[in-house]
């Protein structure tokens, strides 16, 4: 019980730390410090930490353009990612990949694509490679409610089930594709029914509580490896920042994220940090927050 509590606190700390790092990136974006466009992911912290926790050493992660939360979670450090955005040799990939293609093979992030729908076929190939090389581990591919409109989503459902690929397809459903909401651009898609048509297990995550997400993903990973099947996870989340660049995006922007106001961006269930604050003892939350802010960050 005590061990579980310590592990939970570690998860909570990682969510807060990830939020803090994103604040630093956002503040730097406001000052136009970076050479490349960055897509922040305020609101994605709980699922990003949970995915990172789920991964075994031989697991692989395939990301999309909005990859900052996952890259930071896997890296465990802000500096290499920050330097990559500054196009510096000290960056995570020597300043070659920038933001939208940032990968980190040493930490399992093997491929990242800025092209909508492009990464799912590549993930299928990596998963098939796992089978050919008799390598343990699964491949997790991140996509979104916008990218899953591409034909490759359907194709991936088809071939991944046919070849029994060890693939976890993670749909981050933030209800937006750039500035268009789902209802502004298409009909609702019942992903569960699509998965049922292919015989692929489907799971829905909501609530933004990192402990729940981590536990559920470990269970799903067990299904993928135990039953030799791909699986689809749709996670309900909100992107609390502008599509790209800093938030606010312009002087009169009603959406405003400011580190001076603390880690929480929105006092609602949409914000994983707010959810943690509601869940944890106030003193424990304050202690974690203090620990995060005490990090020696030079920039």
């Amino acid at each position: 019980m005590i061990v579980a509590a310590i592990l939970d606190l570690q998860l909570a700390f990682k969510v807060l730390q990830l939020r803090y790092w994103q604040h630093i990136v956002n503040e730097s974006l406001k000052k136009n410090i970076f050479k490349v466009p960055v897509h922040c992911a305020f609101g994605h912290e709980a699922i990003a930490v949970a995915v990172s926790e789920m991964m075994d050493p031989l697991d692989r992660l395939v990301l999309s353009h909005r990859n900052i939360a996952y890259n930071l979670a896997r890296s465990g450090r802000l500096q290499p990612v920050y330097d990559e955005y500054k196009h510096l040799p000290s960056g995570a990939d020597g300043g070659h990949l920038g933001s939208m293609n940032l990968a980190n093979p040493d930490r399992g992030v093997i491929y990242t694509s800025s092209i909508l729908g492009n990464n799912m076929p590549v993930a299928c190939g990596i998963a098939l490679g796992h089978l050919m090389l008799k390598r343990d581990g699964i491949v997790t591919a991140l996509t979104g409610d916008g990218a899953m409109e591409e034909g490759t989503f359907y194709e991936t459902l088809d071939i991944s089930r046919y070849q029994k690929l060890p693939l976890l397809l993670m749909i981050e459903n933030n209800k937006f594709a750039m500035s268009s909401t789902i209802s502004e651009r298409r009909v609702p898609i019942d992903v569960e029914s699509m998965c049922r048509a292919f015989g692929t297990p489907y799971f829905f995550l909501t609530g933004n509580l990192v402990f729940d997400y981590a536990a559920k993903l470990k269970e799903i990973r067990g299904i993928i490896t135990g039953d030799a099947t791909p699986a689809v996870v749709e996670v309900d989340l909100s992107n609390l920042n502008r599509h790209a660049g800093p938030t606010p995006g312009w002087p009169s922007d009603p959406m405003n994220i400011d580190l001076k106001r603390g880690l929480i961006v929105q006092e609602s269930a949409c914000d994983p940090v707010h959810v943690l604050k509601q869940k944890l003892d106030p003193e424990i939350f304050a202690g974690l927050e203090e620990k995060v802010f005490s990090e020696n960050w030079s920039g």
Binding site: G125, I126, M132
Partner: peptide
Amino acid sequence: TGRIINTPNVENTLCGMGFGMMLAGV
């Protein structure tokens, strides 16, 4: 040690898979 796969008609994905296998070392 190899495999022959008669695939579905998913050309875009089949091209991407080739690069994925390359990344995996196959």
